[in-house]
Simulated scan of single mutants.
Amino acid sequence: MALDLFAGIPVADYSAALKWYERLLGAAPAFIPNDTEAVWELAEHRFVYIEHLPGHAGHARHTVFVGDFDARLAQIAERGLDPAERETYANGVRKAIFRDPDGNEIGYGGAPV
């Protein structure tokens, strides 16, 4: 069974969000289907997209688990973004939370060190 995932993030200012997500994700969108959406492919068949929906902006909460947690955070920092919060859970799993200009939460999770 094929499985594709599209995780949407509503934004108020499309241009500002586009620039911010390019910095967070380290690349231009994989494709832009129309004037109000931009889509990045995080892994095969796994996508995140922003959409200009001002009335819904600021309510998204997504977490992406990565195998290269420390390296990923270092790369994002090199592009000028730092996490708003960092957490370590009782089981040692780590999470870094970024917030876009609208307050949408994008977290990166990683296994214990």
Rank of each mutant, 00 (worst) to 15 (best):
100 D>K: 08
112 P>I: 06
105 E>P: 03
30 A>N: 10
33 P>G: 07
55 G>I: 11
38 A>M: 10
30 A>L: 10
44 E>A: 14
33 P>Y: 04
11 V>P: 05
13 D>W: 05
7 A>M: 09
91 N>C: 03
21 Y>H: 03
14 Y>M: 10
10 P>F: 04
23 R>W: 00
29 P>D: 00
75 Q>K: 11
85 E>Y: 14
89 Y>W: 11
42 L>E: 08
67 G>K: 00
51 E>M: 10
36 T>L: 09
83 P>F: 14
108 Y>N: 04
30 A>H: 11
66 V>T: 06
86 R>I: 07
21 Y>M: 06
96 A>K: 01
24 L>W: 02
39 V>C: 10
112 P>C: 11
31 F>M: 06
63 T>G: 01
89 Y>T: 00
11 V>K: 01
57 A>M: 10
100 D>P: 11
18 L>Y: 03
28 A>L: 12
17 A>F: 09
113 V>P: 15
111 A>V: 05
2 A>M: 09
11 V>Y: 06
68 D>L: 07
79 R>L: 12
102 D>V: 07
71 A>R: 04
9 I>L: 13
32 I>D: 04
44 E>W: 12
7 A>I: 12
51 E>W: 07
64 V>D: 02
92 G>H: 06
94 R>T: 04
18 L>C: 03
2 A>D: 08
105 E>S: 15
22 E>A: 08
92 G>S: 11
102 D>K: 02
79 R>E: 10
98 F>I: 06
78 E>I: 00
44 E>Q: 15
83 P>S: 14
18 L>I: 04
